[in-house]
Design a protein around this nucleic acid. Structure first.
Length: 174
DNA sequence: CCCGTGATTTAT
DNA sequence: TAAATCACGGGG
């Protein structure tokens, strides 16, 4: 997932949200918005979209559409699997290991992800990438689907079932 | 419940 | 230029 200073920091993705193009009121690309910040969302799938918000937090998305089709998956939580000590050192406020990556900005802090990694090729890069679960794919019946978090302003899009998480996994946010 | 924090966006 | 917003996290 992330190589930082020669060390491997990794986790299994256990929570995501989808952001669907120009019609999705909750998406940064709603109504065709194309700005310096969201450029990566308009690019090819398989690349990172990292944005900065609330004056202190970064969030990481995997862009999932074709060029000019701004669809992305927000990575909301990981179950840490490698480099836990380094993650604990980066996440000074985390009191338990389930606090390490249980939120979109927490996981970025744990892995040392910031805007410098915006646009990273998540398939080919050596420092930030996604790989298939090795022997640990979750069956569909373990995936809970529901409304997204923190998008109340998005009116009819606020309630759409676009959040996905592993049932009962303690590393999920909220 | 409330607050920090500042880049980004949107309204003038 | 100025004001409002915000795909959040931490503390009480």
């Amino acid at each position: 997932m992330r190589i930082l200073g020669g060390q491997r920091l990794a986790g299994t993705i256990v929570e995501t949200e989808a952001y669907l193009g120009v019609q999705d009121r909750a998406a940064h690309t709603f109504n065709g918005r194309s700005t310096a910040r969201n450029t990566s969302m308009w690019g090819d799938g398989g690349h990172a979209y990292v944005y900065f918000t609330y004056g202190m937090h970064y969030c990481l998305n995997a862009v999932a559409g074709r060029p000019q089709e701004p669809i992305a998956v927000l990575l909301r939580a990981l179950e840490p699997t490698e480099g836990l000590d380094a993650m604990r050192a980066r996440r000074v406020t985390a009191r338990k290991d389930t606090d390490l990556c249980s939120g979109p900005a927490k996981l970025c802090q744990a892995l040392g992800v910031d805007r410098a990694l915006d646009g990273t090729d998540l398939v080919a890069s050596d420092d930030l990438f996604v790989e298939r679960c090795r022997g640990r794919a979750f069956p569909a019946w373990k995936i809970v689907i529901g409304p997204r978090v923190g998008v109340a302003y998005a009116r009819e899009w606020a309630e759409k079932p676009l959040r996905f998480h592993v049932a009962g996994n303690p590393h999920v946010s909220r």
